[in-house]
């Protein structure tokens, strides 16, 4: 009796192991080489990390599910490159935890959105897309201008980012909240630190037009304005091809 049941269980466990084996090997074999991909992909030495304000904006982008309608991945197809700009490179999203490549274009791709429109345009558009583009089906995000941005946990955000591999310095982590404020208040004393820590090219502006208060609108627009601008790597092959 015992032997019979022992055999039965062995059979069930054998089935389980076979399923695990068959189902995992494919994935492992296919994904493993991607973790050595840095050996082949061109590096982008000029690549910078997101500022705390941009990171906060990115998190709002995630929170609101913008990725459900917008992709951030321009494919290597002629019409896409002509419509949206140089195709996306792997290195451009190397600090993106998680990536936001998207899977659906109910709205246009925005991988190269940075600098395409003014801050005012974005604020008006986010407040009510149909004020700017009458046919738009994008939701209105009026509440963003009303919502004060939460900054007390930004240091924690940067710390966690560093733990998963984004090179934030101690200095950046310690000053995360101040930097977030400074980036949207160009005349404040905090603004200087932002340029020092993240580079002169960083956008330091009152994104929502109101330098005094730091809103979620500031953060989101700051993020939208940096899309595709963290590195020049993608623009280089184009330029050399033209020569």
């Amino acid at each position: 009796m015992f032997g019979f049941h022992y055999r039965l269980e062995r059979k069930a466990i054998g089935l389980v192991l076979a399923i695990i084996g068959v189902a995992s090997i494919g994935g492992i074999v296919e994904i493993a080489p991607l973790f050595t991909i840095h050996q082949t992909v061109e590096d982008a030495p000029d690549m910078r990390v997101y500022t705390p304000l941009e990171l906060a904006g990115r998190n709002i982008y995630i929170r609101e599910g913008c990725y459900a309608c917008h992709s951030q991945m321009i494919r290597t197809l002629r019409d896409e490159v002509e419509r949206y700009g140089p195709y996306s490179l792997a290195v451009e999203s190397k600090y993106d935890h998680p990536m936001l490549w998207g899977s659906k274009r109910t709205g246009p791709d925005i991988a190269r959105l940075g600098g395409k429109y003014s801050d005012d345009w974005h604020v008006a558009h986010l407040n009510n897309p149909r004020d700017v583009v009458p046919e738009s089906v994008m939701p209105a995000y009026r509440f963003l201008s009303r919502a004060e941005l939460r900054t007390d946990d930004l240091s924690n955000h940067l710390k966690a980012q560093r733990r998963v591999g984004v090179p934030y310095s101690d200095d950046m982590i310690a000053n995360a909240a101040a930097d977030a404020y400074g980036q949207a208040a160009p005349d404040s004393p905090q603004a200087e630190g932002v340029a020092k820590r993240y580079g002169k090219a960083t956008n330091i502006r009152a994104f929502d037009g109101k330098p005094k208060d730091l809103t979620e609108m500031d953060a989101l627009v700051a993020y939208l304005q940096i899309l595709g601008r963290l590195t020049d790597a993608a623009y280089k092959p184009m330029a050399s091809a033209e020569k």
Binding site: I31, L34, F35, I37, N59, A90, V91, E92, S93, K94, Y95, D96, H97, P98, M99, W101, D153, N156, H157, K159, A160, Q161, R163, V164, G165, V166
Partner: peptide
Amino acid sequence: VPIAWGSAKSYSLFAGVQDA
């Protein structure tokens, strides 16, 4: 990696291509 106990937010261990 969660950013802290007491926060719902976390960051994916993977980035970019690997994450995709």
